[in-house]
Design a protein around this nucleic acid. Structure first.
Lengths: 210, 210, 210, 210
DNA sequence: AATGAATGAGGTTTCATTCAT
DNA sequence: TATGAATGAAACCTCATTCAT
């Protein structure tokens, strides 16, 4: 229930007030990273948007990258919680369309708050001269979906399963990203297309493996 | 056939030598944007990689953003040419699987040279505090695919057609992006999944509309 | 017998507990100034090492410079006490070699605890844009040695005597500083050289004035 | 004849104008480091005093420490050149007093320009969390003096010779430092004391070893 | 037209000091 | 009185852009 793992924080915020403050910083960071990307979002702007001084920001986060990681982790936790709720034992017996429906609904719930952020989180950011191949956020999502797939098709080869999971996550991310760029009505229709896309991709698997 | 539209260039490069120079700049920019992203790629580094002085770079491009836009346009032209070759009259009579096969092959051809760049071009970049909703590159791709779809399913409603085109482009981009992160063998398999994904998405349309 | 002159303290620490606290702060400051120099030693680090809060530190010392001055004064008192023990009436009749021996022994005693600090104290620190020409610590040492010299050579002209005192102090400081940079054995030999140096400098005075 | 070794410079200043500029920067740095010490002298202030922009400073020196090192090296070269002129074959036959006279005169020549700097150069500065035990400047001086001593007393044990060299350099530095704090007339007399100090220290060696 | 040194606004981060609790 | 979170000025350094040569 902490806003972040200790690794990214200078000090564990024990007081209620501190926890709120950390959350305000993360909210501001989420907005600005989403608006401008990792590089262009400045720590001063984040502090200002959070309504605190730059010094306070650096009391909680040792640097910009740590702030970014903490943000990833917060969204990771939220998304995984939402997906986890879908991962029920009856998953194996449901119609595949129903599964897709539930998963997409779960994701919409997590990304609904700030869909622009999804783009930035997925992208990751260049850490210490080395470009991160998979953001930890992405990795967590893929892992979760891999679990869902295993539950559904226990006999699917792990390699293939992993690839399918990657494709699903990547495609879902892409269409959420698309929806982000459309106005309300069109965004809604884009979600329908996402379901069609996943359904068309997974249905053959159902026939192939089950 | 100019390397760029006039809007992004200071001066139309009429001389052969100038045109070559602009292309060298764009090549260098393509490499560096792909390696480091828009913000982290410095104009000085681009000029150096291009083997010219920073002053010369600014004689051709008024600023970094214009250089980026010119790069987008160049890749737009290249990709559209590749897609255009697929857009033949017999498209309407081909099996849908064959269409997908050809389109993916065409895209692989364009992106194969520098897949990392695709990421950056699609992403667009934050221009003057305003986030670009659709990169011009993306827009051009969607338009082209929209043309393909119209040729195939003339009776499909334009609105729906447009949305389907967007989904295809977005999904294809996403999976190329995925392939970029995998090693050779796995990347190859990812391309197979892309075909499966598009096929599963478009096949129902064939039955629905045709 | 207060730990510091009133000028550097916010409040005279009357309670025993307060006096102990001030001493803990000065101990911590001595360590950190010696380790890192005046600028690099942070007040927060000093407070932490002293086991108190930064707020408490500022209740006793109005700012970092005052803390430094208080530290100088404490070491002044200690060193002067050590030197004072040498300043006995029989000084005039001792062999000069014996005097040097005693003085160096006295100094080793004061500086032995934290030789690194000597460097920092002697150096003084840039106060408000104005470089301190003589640190108060240095000044006190010179004054003390001047007294020793007067006792030994009452007929030496005061001007000359003062200069000789300055030279002795400066040279002694320099060789303590040198010793600080050498390992145990070499440091010990450096102290022998210090005695030779002072002896060679002062012996001619003995013949000249006495 | 370069103002600095390549290691500390971003670009070798080939043009006359550039070389002058680098020297202006080093002059400004010498002043400010002398006035305020390494930490308190800001790169912006140095650039301003040099009459250039901060950007220009960083075109020549990659960071503050490199600027400091370049400064050390410049003074090293100057001092060593001055000392080198003393290192003549007839040194072995001269009276020891004459040798001291010459060496002190050589040093006065180098340090006369900016004696305050000597303090800072000798001190060195904390590089990368590790405190430099001997500044490279100091080391160079000691090495040079060691050479002088070898020429004079070839039969002196190398260990002892090295220690004597260290003592001479450290003591000379200390008295130059002292002179720095006195007004003209007194400073002059301090130099006389330096000669007396060195003479008293070295004369016994002459009797002992020769 | 080409060069590349020069510029300086603005980025991240530190740390002396204050003040509400 | 003690605490330590909050503050914000100011440090170092980068890099898009200009302009004298």
């Amino acid at each position: 229930m902490n806003p972040s793992s200790p690794a990214n924080l200078r000090r564990l915020p024990r007081q209620l007030r501190s926890r709120r403050r950390v959350n305000r910083i993360l909210d501001a960071a989420a907005q600005l990273f989403a608006e401008a990307g990792f590089e262009a979002a400045t720590t001063n702007a984040i502090a200002e948007r959070a309504g605190i001084s730059i010094g306070s920001l650096y009391q909680y986060f040792p640097n910009k990258a740590a702030l970014f990681r903490a943000l990833c982790e917060r969204y990771e936790r939220e998304s995984l919680a939402a997906l986890g709720a879908v991962l029920t034992p009856d998953l194996a017996r449901l119609e595949i369309g129903e599964v897709v429906e539930r998963v997409v609904a779960a994701l919409r719930q997590s990304y609904g708050t700030n869909p622009g952020l999804l783009r930035v989180l997925f992208q990751g950011h260049p850490a210490q001269g080395q470009c991160v191949p998979h953001s930890s956020f992405r990795e967590a999502m893929v892992h979760q979906v891999d679990g869902l797939l295993e539950l559904r098709w226990p006999r699917l080869a792990p390699d293939r399963r992993r690839l399918v999971a990657e494709v699903c996550v990547q495609a879902a991310d892409a269409l959420f990203d698309l929806a982000l760029k459309l106005e309300r009505e069109a965004a809604h229709r884009a979600m329908d297309e996402l379901k069609r896309l996943l359904l068309g991709y997974l249905e053959p698997l159902d026939r192939e493996v089950a």
